[in-house]
């Protein structure tokens, strides 16, 4: 993938001439900025970069990138991106999707793209609401949520996107949020550099229909106590003075504990490269929702050949083994006779 002749670019080169049309104050703006700021550093060419989205507020994203882009149909960004990434492994393919797009109407495609490990970077903007259709509850909305379609409160149990991705045995799974550009850029870069499907859940504020959904954990003053940064090889610790940590008991349950009570050695050491996604899964649902201390960062990053590389290797190997296809030979490969 290293292309040493890539022209030097700045953020401006990656921004299209289209007027950005999200609601003022929407979390989508800061995500767009983070991506546009990151692109010059990735060593990729604009013409080799493709953003594909589905339908929803976040899915307007491709129009704002000065790259190739497709704003497809609801839930179907991943199949299109899969076909593209598999047939054109030379391209850098990104998918921008939302909680409704990826987890409701397109849920099936998400789990299959992840288990196949298609070489894509998937940014899931989770605002826990349907914004574009003006405020219905989504598959990540909390139970009891009152919306236009649930005036007496939602009785649906929500998905946890990171747990779902880990359940599908995704090879790269991370979470970040729209109020921390540096954290977003770090996570996006790692998802991009990962060979295979890089899945990132982004807590994104919809200030019109679900304002403050993540405020309890993402507000600057709340972060030390409410966000648990995951660092590979390091104890999982947080708190104003790093006094808290995560411990796994003998039953395999994760708990938040005072480090002083249990001793430093009892604290879980984060291992994103662990083959078994079990520990990552434990961490992913440590919080029942974005009102309790929530781990962010990279949950899992393991190596597994991606689907496109495997398929393309087969194609190359077949040509080597059987010789390049000869149509005349194919047509006469059954029983033939002359008249």
């Amino acid at each position: 993938m290293t292309d040493i002749d890539v022209p030097i670019t700045t953020k401006k080169d990656w921004a299209s001439d289209q007027e950005v049309r999200w609601c003022p104050g929407c979390g989508d703006y800061s995500i767009l900025t983070a991506v546009q700021m990151l692109m010059p550093d990735l060593g990729m060419r604009r013409e080799k970069t493709v953003f594909i989205s589905g339908i929803g507020c976040s899915s307007r994203f491709p129009y704002y990138m000065n790259t190739y882009g497709v704003h497809s149909i609801h839930g179907r960004a991943l199949p299109m991106a899969t076909g593209l990434a598999v047939s054109r492994p030379d391209l850098d393919v990104w998918v921008v999707t939302g909680d409704g797009d990826a987890l409701s109407i397109g849920g099936n495609h998400l789990i299959h793209a992840l288990r196949r490990n298609v070489n894509l970077t998937v940014l899931l903007f989770n605002n826990q609401i349907y914004g574009l259709t003006k405020g219905q509850y989504s598959p990540t909305s909390e139970e009891g949520k009152v919306t236009k379609s649930t005036p007496f409160g939602s009785v649906d149990h929500p998905f946890n996107p990171v747990s779902l991705a880990l359940g599908a045995e995704a090879t790269f799974v991370a979470r970040t949020h729209d109020l921390d550009r540096a954290h977003m850029m770090g996570v996006f870069r790692r998802a991009h550099d990962h060979q295979g499907a890089g899945f990132v859940e982004i807590y994104q504020n919809c200030n019109v229909f679900n304002d403050g959904a993540f405020e309890k954990i993402t507000a600057r003053e709340a972060r030390p106590r409410m966000l648990i940064p995951l660092v590979h090889g390091q104890p999982v610790r947080f708190g104003d003075t790093n006094e808290l940590g995560v411990m796994v008991d003998r039953q395999g349950q994760a708990h938040i504990v005072n480090v002083a009570d249990v001793g430093e050695d009892a604290i879980l050491i984060h291992d994103e490269r662990h083959d078994d996604p079990g520990l990552a899964f434990l961490l992913s649902h440590l919080a029942r929702g974005p009102s309790e201390p929530t781990p962010i960062g990279v949950f899992r990053a393991v190596d597994r050949p991606d689907y496109g590389s495997l398929l393309n290797h087969q194609v190359v190997a077949a040509a080597e083994r059987f010789g390049p296809g000869n149509l005349t030979e194919l047509l006469s490969s059954g029983t033939t006779w002359q008249t």
């Binding site: 497709v70 179907r76 199949p79 299109m80 899969t82 076909g83 047939s87 299959h112």
Partner: peptide
């Protein structure tokens, strides 16, 4: 749906 979507993605890629 994924089948036709992937075919369309490949067509987009040439």
């Amino acid at each position: 749906i994924a089948a036709v979507g992937a075919a369309l993605g490949a067509a987009y890629g040439g």
